[in-house]
Computed example of a mutant assay.
Amino acid sequence: MTVQNETATGVLLTDAAASKAKALLDQEGRDDLALRIAVQPGGCAGLRYQLFFDDRSLDGDVVSDFGGVKLAVDRMSAPYVQGATIDFVDSIEKQGFTIDNPNATGSCACGDSFN
């Protein structure tokens, strides 16, 4: 797992995650979208991540660039994801984006939410 340098968002995007996000954007022919990480209330542990492509620019957004992929974090989510690393895993067991967050003190049994 190769990790980029410290960013304005406080969130790190690995090379694998940036490459996958870039490939998805290229496949759709879109260069106007940012990969947004947000934290919303929900799940049995209290908080849930949302990771999606977004064409909006919200007041207070912090944006970092990783090899042509913009990563956006809204001001309410920023304290919850400070120091987190977003990676992309592609193995026999699982495939998809993962979030390693040192601020999460616990999670539910299904791993869908954190606190």
Rank of each mutant, 00 (worst) to 15 (best):
residue 4 Q to K: 11
residue 5 N to Q: 10
residue 5 N to P: 05
residue 5 N to E: 04
residue 5 N to D: 03
residue 6 E to R: 05
residue 7 T to K: 15
residue 7 T to H: 12
residue 8 A to N: 07
residue 8 A to I: 06
residue 10 G to I: 00
residue 10 G to N: 01
residue 10 G to A: 02
residue 11 V to L: 00
residue 11 V to Q: 00
residue 13 L to K: 06
residue 13 L to D: 03
residue 13 L to E: 02
residue 13 L to Y: 02
residue 14 T to Q: 12
residue 14 T to I: 12
residue 14 T to P: 12
residue 15 D to T: 11
residue 15 D to H: 07
residue 15 D to E: 12
residue 15 D to K: 10
residue 16 A to F: 05
residue 16 A to D: 11
residue 17 A to W: 06
residue 17 A to L: 02
residue 17 A to F: 03
residue 17 A to M: 04
residue 18 A to P: 04
residue 19 S to P: 05
residue 19 S to N: 15
residue 19 S to F: 11
residue 20 K to S: 08
residue 20 K to G: 06
residue 20 K to L: 04
residue 22 K to Q: 13
residue 22 K to L: 11
residue 22 K to T: 10
residue 22 K to M: 08
residue 23 A to S: 11
residue 24 L to N: 09
residue 25 L to G: 04
residue 26 D to L: 10
residue 26 D to V: 14
residue 27 Q to A: 15
residue 27 Q to K: 15
residue 27 Q to I: 06
residue 27 Q to G: 13
residue 28 E to M: 13
residue 28 E to N: 14
residue 29 G to E: 13
residue 30 R to D: 08
residue 31 D to M: 01
residue 31 D to V: 01
residue 31 D to W: 00
residue 31 D to F: 01
residue 32 D to G: 12
residue 33 L to D: 08
residue 33 L to T: 05
residue 33 L to V: 13
residue 34 A to P: 00
residue 34 A to S: 11
residue 35 L to M: 15
